[in-house]
C-alpha cells in the first residue's frame, strides 16, 4: 500500500522533471521510482492504513489552506519589513517567548502548524515538545493572538478533532 501510494505520488514528479518520454528514459524512470518507493515508501507515507479517498480529500482541503497561508506570508513579510525599516526599531518590538498547548495529535499536522506559525506574522516556532509549542513572538499583539484560528484550520485540513 505504501509502495503503491508513494509510487503514484512520485511518478508525476519524475516525469515532470524529466520531460523525456522515449522508451529508454521511461524505463529508467520506472526503475528509479520503484527503488525509491521500495526504499522510502514507508517514510513518505506515514499512515499506511489511511484510505485513498481520504488522502485525496486532504489534498483538496490543503489547497485553500495554502492560499490562505500565502496571504499570511505576504502579510508577515510586510510586517517584518515594516519593523526592520522603521527608524526606531526598539520601540516597536518586544520579543518574547510564548508557549501554548495544541490538541493536534498527528505529527504531520503538528509540522504543518509549526511551519505555518513560522511563516505567519511575527511568530516563529522554536520547539515542539509533545504537544507544547514554544514560540518566539516579535511583538505583544501577535504574542497575545496565538494560536489564533490557525490550529483549527489545520485540524480541518487533516480531519482532526481538537478539544477546544
Amino acid at each position: 500500500m505504501q509502495f503503491i501510494t508513494s509510487f503514484i505520488l512520485l511518478v508525476p514528479f519524475w516525469f515532470l522533471m524529466s520531460g523525456k518520454f522515449d522508451m529508454f528514459h521511461v524505463v529508467l524512470g520506472i526503475i528509479s521510482i520503484t527503488i525509491v518507493s521500495l526504499w522510502f515508501g514507508n517514510m513518505l507515507i506515514q499512515s499506511p492504513k489511511k484510505s485513498f479517498p481520504a488522502r485525496l480529500g486532504e489534498i483538496f482541503n490543503f489547497i485553500p489552506y495554502l492560499f490562505w497561508l500565502l496571504i499570511e506570508i505576504v502579510k508577515s513579510n510586510i510586517h517584518v519589513i515594516k519593523i526592520s525599516l522603521s527608524p526606531n526599531i526598539e520601540s516597536c518590538i518586544n520579543p518574547q517567548f510564548v508557549t501554548f498547548k495544541t490538541s493536534l495529535k498527528k505529527d504531520f499536522s503538528k509540522f504543518i502548524l509549526a511551519n505555518s506559525i513560522t511563516l505567519t506574522p511575527g511568530t516563529v516556532t522554536v520547539r515542539i515538545s509533545d504537544s507544547e509549542f514554544l514560540i518566539h513572538a516579535l511583538t505583544d499583539e501577535v504574542a497575545s493572538g496565538l494560536p489564533g484560528d490557525m490550529e483549527s484550520k489545520v485540524a480541518k485540513v487533516f480531519n482532526e478533532r481538537i478539544s477546544k
Binding site: I73, S76, N77, V80, I81, I83, S84, I89, E90, I93, P95, T118, L119, G122, V124, H136, L138
Partner: peptide, 15 residues
C-alpha cells in the same frame, strides 16, 4: 538592524 538573534531570525525566516 534588529537587536537580537531571535528577531533577526524572524527577518531571515520570513522575508
Amino acid at each position: 538592524r534588529l537587536p537580537d538573534f531571535y528577531s533577526r531570525a524572524h527577518a531571515a525566516g520570513k522575508a
